[in-house]
Design a protein around this nucleic acid. Structure first.
Length: 250
DNA sequence: AGGTCTGTTCAGCT
DNA sequence: TAGCTGAACAGACC
């Protein structure tokens, strides 16, 4: 599920759990929980309260005890979500769980175990949030380098929050080829891309996720451009499956 | 059985 | 050195 819109939803879920005393922590999944040592997260968090939930791109972090306690970093990986006050998931899909004094709970629910719960995370490599970055910073950060434009959008360093589906949707909206070297774009094109990004994120948050884009249902064999009905092209760019309209985005 | 998947990191190359 | 690419990670689903 998770791209920026889903991560924002997760942040809002975490806010429902603020202010309650932590009575127990299950961090036994030493692949998802960092540091690996079982009990490290539990020792750091028990007795404290989550006090604020933050997000940049897809990276989440939670303050404890108004900044007096440790920071808890959370990432949803490829298939994770945050479940607050829900019954425990089957098959150990809750990879990290906090229990509260009021009987409620917060879980990182993730079938694939690519999500993360991290004590004192280092997010220094993460760029400005894709939903907040201004046109000038966007142009400077995206419009450089020789990598294909789509690969640059997927890199969380220049701008954070764009995943595979959102990248295809945004490039389609802006009528730009995913294969263009990022540094070759004009400022006009970069501004067009920035506008498309703002629009796509706003729509995705409003409609419930990155999968609600207009192009997304057509990312299938036989799929067609929702604008001009030309058959979509499929390829592999930036290591990910990419769909685009060869006519509009030539 | 084998390929795919809405993400990130790191080794290795240029 | 910096930038870029592709493999690896894990497990469910088709």
């Amino acid at each position: 599920m998770p791209e920026l819109p889903e991560a924002e939803r997760a942040r809002q879920q975490i806010e429902r759990a603020l202010g309650r005393e932590i009575t127990a922590v299950d961090d036994h999944d030493s692949y998802v929980c960092r540091p690996h040592a079982p009990g490290a997260l539990a020792a750091a968090l028990c007795g404290r309260r989550l006090t604020s939930a933050h997000r940049r791109g897809k990276f989440l972090w939670v303050q404890t005890d108004d900044g007096d306690g440790p920071v808890l970093g959370l990432h949803l990986g490829m298939a994770g979500r945050i479940a607050v006050d829900e019954d425990p998931a089957p098959r150990n899909w809750d990879r990290f769980t906090i229990e509260f004094a009021d009987g409620g709970r917060l879980a990182l629910r993730d079938k694939r175990r690519l999500g993360r719960a991290v004590l004192e995370p280092d997010y220094s490599h993460v760029g400005p949030d894709a939903g907040e970055v201004g046109p000038q910073a966007f142009a400077e950060r995206i419009g450089r380098g020789s990598a294909p434009l789509k690969a640059r959008l997927l890199d969380q360093g220049p701008v954070a929050g764009i995943g595979n589906l959102l990248a295809d949707e945004v490039l389609w909206r802006a009528r730009l080829s995913p294969r263009r070297p990022a540094g070759d774009l004009s400022r006009t094109e970069l501004d067009r891309l920035h506008c498309a990004l703002r629009g796509a994120i706003a729509d995705a948050i409003r409609l419930g996720g990155a999968h609600t884009g207009a192009l997304i249902p057509q990312r299938i064999p036989g799929g067609r451009c929702p604008r001009c009905t030309a058959p979509l092209q499929r390829g592999r760019i930036g290591g990910r499956t990419t769909w685009w309209c060869p006519k509009d985005q030539g």
